[in-house]
Write a protein that binds this DNA or RNA. Sequence first.
DNA 1: CACGCTGGGTTCACTTGACGAACCGACCGC
DNA 2: GCGGTCGGTTCGTCAAGTGAACCCAGCGTG
Lengths: 152, 152
Amino acid sequence: MLIDVSELLLDRTRCSVAGTLAVVGEKWTLLVLREAFLGVRRFADFQRILGAPKAVLTDRLAGLVEQGILRRVPYQAEGERQRAEYRLTRKGVDLFPTLVALMEWGDRYLADGDGPLELDHRDCGAPVHLALSCEAGHPVDGAWDVTSVRRG
Amino acid sequence: MLIDVSELLLDRTRCSVAGTLAVVGEKWTLLVLREAFLGVRRFADFQRILGAPKAVLTDRLAGLVEQGILRRVPYQAEGERQRAEYRLTRKGVDLFPTLVALMEWGDRYLADGDGPLELDHRDCGAPVHLALSCEAGHPVDGAWDVTSVRRG
DNA sequence: CACGCTGGGTTCACTTGACGAACCGACCGC
DNA sequence: GCGGTCGGTTCGTCAAGTGAACCCAGCGTG
């Protein structure tokens, strides 16, 4: 995993971690997405559950829509006027592993092993986890089994 | 994946995603950890590579040490006085999947497929990826193959 | 010994961002 | 019309990030 520090000077600007954090790294953004994965879609529900200030929530939802992570879909509850709800796009759904990674670390280190939510495979019901593995199929046990190589 | 929104009111305070973000969710923290995984250990190197304000960096490093994610190790370069460097603990190393998840999403959506860094298995050289899988061994294809169940 | 250099900080003025309460306006049923 | 709800904006206040200046210990050099 170790590489020469001086090599890194070049590409920290195009680092994908930094890029992703520029998109979802602001306060509340990942919590909004967590709720979106749990099925929350309406402004009022996000606000009530998260307790975030409305101005911030407006800003974060607009940002996520602009990034193509959420999309606004009109809906009309009966007896109410037409409103917009927020749904995950494919680009948004693909952030699921990020949230799972955060959750699993929190479960292990902040909740003493098991957190409040278990993820199960829809087909077979068995618990689901995130794992690193190589394309040859070997299990990869953490960061020290991995080397990083600069690409083009 | 969908669960009744009203069920969520209770546990958002003990949610592991929120908990983890409380620890590593401030600005610069995950970038500091990215550099730590790439082998950076010294204050001056973090500062030069990241370009973060010194005051913030001091604060983030102290916070990570306090949380047990980094530890200070004394070292002495030749012809210099003794200083401390920052190294990942086991708790810190276990954040690796989180960074890989962020990186893979950025590679796909911000860098058009391939980012600047490839992760390879140290033993066999094959590329390494993060994947969801269930304990029965089935591959899990994204968030919609997953249901969430509240635990005790 | 005085000197300047380096790494790892701290301090301080300034700007940016989060907060929370108040207000607003479209649309609904009555 | 009338009051209620949802989604949103405005505004004053307060916390956080920024960047430049300063500081200090200990090293090597003259």
